[in-house]
Design a protein around this nucleic acid. Structure first.
Lengths: 340, 340
DNA sequence: TTGAAAGCGGTACCAG
DNA sequence: CTGGTACCGCTTTCAA
């Protein structure tokens, strides 16, 4: 089952040294004679010595594991984030434990229990749409477990955050709509609990206000489960279309909602953009192929994963407690196609 | 850092028992009096006892980790597979280590080294397009490491395999094209090294032959990196279009190739399906939205992940060496839309 | 600079 | 049925 089961003791025996000497030599630890250190290192590498991680972990209470908490792996945005996380974790010899909660608070809590049981060294977290109570994270954080939030973050736990420029990205999209002459701009957005919804709404309102257009609350529709539940999207879109003054443009605030809405409008045979325009956050690869090609706001998902992981590893490996935390903001890109 | 650090020794002390008794009681091991067992279990659950996995692993040489080897996490097909894997792993308390190799043989080997160093209990593998030499897997398998191959499999290592019905799926797609009256059916496919390419080609040829149509080797174009490299797709499609008798229908053999080809044809302004029809394997969520809606062959990706993981866990937990292996074949679904 | 020994948290064998 | 103890592989005092 195991390969190359060569341990420190084997080396010690072979070289006629004590375990501890070998251990120290391998870690390049201080007071060890140059010669023995070299000798040990050489023997080790020749025999492909690899420290037993279980033993190390047991001893140091470090697992070199990073726990990842997010809503859905196949979601194209998160899949890309994971890929970014993997790229850094791989290069730094960290292992990834990925959990998905499907936007369920309950599963988020259960996954978290599992992760801590596995004694992860740190956590990369994007909150579920259902999550309001943060005490499960707060508790761990208070106990000193490094956490970095990404995408759907919170201000209530003092740590690093990596987010998209949601306000700016949305602002640009709405301004673009306004400049194209759309007058009644509605939005189908995600759960009001999560940060990205609040920020995207802020960008939406900011743009409208700045251009002297009214903010109409009837034009703001929420999907409590961020588009996981198609019914929620349907209800939202339906009620917009049925209203006295149906919107002439839609801003959809997440990948799933964008695709869902587009699909719905297409099915209803509405002419895009003549009858209704659509611009939305989406990280799907080829919105070019859509009919008509979809104007999107793209996020740097891969980059987000990388950055969050780098920050987390910094926290994990920092000798002294970190007290100043960063909020990294990643730019978005508005790609104008024919749906607006 | 750690939570609830309650160990077996704590329980033993509190209950005035020996470590071993507590250990046995917790495992529901045979000879233990009903009463002490209950007492221990109750105390344990009241105090949220969770065995230390590091210690357990160190002792039993089991890590409850499953290593996953695949080419690309954000690929929609694999992202769904991973989701399926996660669902089973989660429910059985296994941990997932996911690696991606971006179709590079070298990275596949390096990832594998990493995984074995982490002493995973088993491996779920989908081969990279570059992989021809299997000795890195063979070596581990010979040493008794359970492996289940999925999607891109090999016959040369005797173990479970979970695959899509590639032959049947392709056959249906090609038959569909023939029935629609297409005469010159070409295919853009993946690397000739991997099983899915061979099988899909077999289905392609089988259908043509069965319907009395010639198999023209010039109509078969390979993308050695399975569509990771856009240039390869472009070259393939270009040379088909430039040929003396350009095809009137295209069968694209993987998710990336399908999307890439479609994108290319659209950009060139070719009328689909009038000038050229397209049918392809694809697991992207909404090919309905494409222009025109894309006829696809869908695979049960989530199901594949689940099944492979179930088989792997069976292997891992089997008391006696398993000698008879299964080859599970999952059905495909041809969804006809307007591109054919 | 090196060695001996304790211990991380569990498991399993051997006695009793 | 229960207790004592060695040991998994490594790290880290404490002595020498």
């Amino acid at each position: 089952m195991k390969i190359e089961t060569i341990t420190i003791k084997d080396i010690a025996k072979a070289l006629n040294l004590s375990y501890s000497t070998v251990s120290r030599a391998l870690k390049g630890s201080y007071k060890i004679s140059e010669s023995t250190r070299e000798m040990v290192k050489q023997y080790a590498s020749e025999h492909h010595y690899r420290p037993n991680l279980m033993a190390q972990s047991l001893k140091n209470k470090k697992s070199r594991c990073i726990g990842v908490v997010l809503c859905s792996i196949p979601n194209s945005f998160f899949a890309e984030v994971i890929s970014g996380i993997e790229s850094i974790a791989y290069s730094q010899d960290y292992l990834l434990i990925i959990t998905q909660n499907l936007e369920s608070y309950e599963r988020e809590v259960k996954n978290l229990e599992n992760l801590t049981w596995r004694s992860v060294d740190g956590l990369l977290v994007s909150l579920s749409t259902e999550t309001e109570d943060l005490s499960h994270f707060q508790k761990l954080h208070d106990q000193g477990l490094p956490i970095v939030f990404f995408d759907r973050v919170t201000d209530n736990i003092k740590t690093h955050r990596v987010v998209t420029d949601n306000i700016g990205g949305t602002y640009n999209a709405i301004r673009h709509l306004i400049e194209r002459g759309y007058k009644r701009i509605a939005t189908v957005t995600s759960s009001p609990h999560i940060s990205i919804t609040r920020e995207r709404l802020e960008g939406y309102k900011k743009a409208l206000t700045e251009f002297g257009m009214p903010v109409n609350d009837d034009y703001i529709k929420y999907c409590p489960h961020g588009g996981m539940v198609m019914d929620e999207i349907e209800t939202a879109v339906e009620s917009l279309l049925q209203s006295n003054e149906p919107p002439d443009a839609l801003f959809t605030a997440s990948d799933r909602i964008t695709i869902g809405t587009y699909s719905l409008l297409t099915k209803k045979g509405l002419k895009i953009p003549d009858e209704i325009a659509v611009v939305g956050f989406s990280n799907f690869g080829d919105p070019d192929l859509f009919n008509p090609p979809l104007t999107t706001i793209r996020q740097s998902a891969f980059e987000m994963g990388k950055l969050a992981t780098e920050l987390l590893i910094q926290l994990i490996e920092s000798k002294r407690p970190v007290t100043s935390f960063e909020r990294k903001v990643l730019p978005t890109e508005l790609i104008v196609r024919s749906s607006t």
